[in-house]
Design a protein around this nucleic acid. Structure first.
Lengths: 253, 253
DNA sequence: AAGTGGTCTAGACCACATA
DNA sequence: ATGTGGTCTAGACCACTTC
């Protein structure tokens, strides 16, 4: 009769919507193309705008879409591989360094950082701000904490702050020999500062990479770098990483 | 609590709310404690429930909260460090293997996987499902794609499917010598299958780790593992990783 | 000025866990 | 049966970019 069929597993609308849109992106759109605006899309699919947005949000999280306020929603290119390196070659300011110093201040670090650095709770350290650009786009913002003892030769004659001082600190940091490094990756959301540097809104998802550089048996520096989670695929190991993306899936026929 | 007035730069409500809640979590709550329900919290802060939820969502993304339907919202423990390893010791089924085989089927992999494995577009491979448990909690679900040529000695007499066959495949996979491995980490959202295995809802944020195992100059196996982004901090390198969490921040005074 | 995505509201109903 | 978080709606206004 007129009764609706019993849905044993009622899939959420936004979930189904995401699937439909994902397939449409594969078959009917090309990279960089702009989608219809959210109000039109919502009307076309017969859902509220909030529901449509929930689907778009997920697709953006997966790196399939890029949304910019005042502009529109575009189809994102595949994520770019960003190498983090694991060997002993990646030392701040070293040969393969992809980072660009931005600024440098001297201040007391957060308690959690001071603990790792084994500095006193009120002992100031050098805080170098660096940014990483790849393929012409900003991909990461970093705070590099350098304790005073790691750069003993740092002359006060150098610039007291700014990019010049950042370079001076990095230069001095290269003197001791690197013993090892440790990496950790976790999910986070961009703070106001990082968001601005990454050209994203605050709260944007980021991959937080914390790296501890050890020299002479002590933590010589601590790096906290936030990578844009929407555009980056972090690669480790010997080569550039594996190219695995969802892409158009084949259906059993 | 007290209302805060700022008009110069209209900070989004949910952003401010997130900050307030974050501080409250540090000072007034302990791990495992349950928060008031969303309707009460929204009323207490004088916002709509949707706005309150936007703040909770971010805090959950950052691993500060854990929300379970029908139960409530609790304060999450610090993320657990999960070692991925980088040395040549981590081979599926090897000594330090933290994975538990669940199932095994033989099927044609997605096109993107077949390309990396250098198998024909219609050539079936072994697909081993494994799960990883840490501290009594499921942390990752994996699909391990093993081409036929990597396990030539696999006897048809072994179990045709199920956990028994998974173990057989892993056993045979250990014969060739590992040359190197490549890792990549990116953000994704859990599919229906993974979500169930990870005890999360579909769409939950996950860290997708793809690992290519190379032996005899060829890709011997490809692993696509999804880690719970809310509870896991992936660690690389020699040791257990760095313990950096936001924690109570001190304010400049 | 017009159009876009971002934020916010005040409801409603549903799925799930627990008692 | 009750209470929780999850989904959904139909609006409104705001911040930003572009024309």
């Amino acid at each position: 009769m007129g009764t609706t069929q019993l849905e044993s597993v009622p899939e959420p609308k936004y979930w189904h919507l995401k699937t439909v849109l994902s397939q449409a992106l594969d078959s009917e759109f090309s990279v960089g193309e702009i989608l219809p605006n959210e109000r039109d899309l919502a009307a076309r699919f017969g859902v509220a705008r909030a529901t449509l947005r929930q689907a778009l949000e997920q697709l953006e999280l997966e790196g399939r879409l890029q949304r910019r306020r005042g502009v529109g929603t575009t189809v994102a290119p595949p994520r770019m591989g960003v190498s983090l390196g694991t060997g002993p070659h990646v030392w701040p300011g070293g040969p393969d360094d992809a980072w660009q110093p931005v600024d440098c201040t001297t201040a007391v670090p957060p308690a959690a950082v001071a603990e790792v650095l084994e500095t006193g709770p009120d002992e100031p350290v050098h805080i170098v701000r660096r940014s990483r650009v790849s393929h012409g786009r900003p991909v990461a913002a970093e705070l590099l904490y350098v304790p005073q003892f790691s750069v003993p030769e740092l002359s006060g004659i150098d610039a007291p702050s700014g990019a010049a001082r950042a370079r001076a600190v990095l230069r001095e940091l290269q003197r001791p020999a690197l013993e090892r490094q440790e990496n950790a990756v976790e999910l986070g959301s961009a703070g106001a500062d990082d968001a601005k540097e990454l050209d994203r809104l605050p709260g944007a998802p980021v991959l937080v990479v914390t790296t501890r550089f050890v020299a002479a048996g002590r933590t010589a520096a601590l790096s906290v770098a936030t990578y844009r989670a929407d555009t980056c695929r972090l690669t480790f190991g010997d080569a550039g990483g594996v190219e695995i993306h969802a892409g158009p899936q084949r259906k059993a026929s």
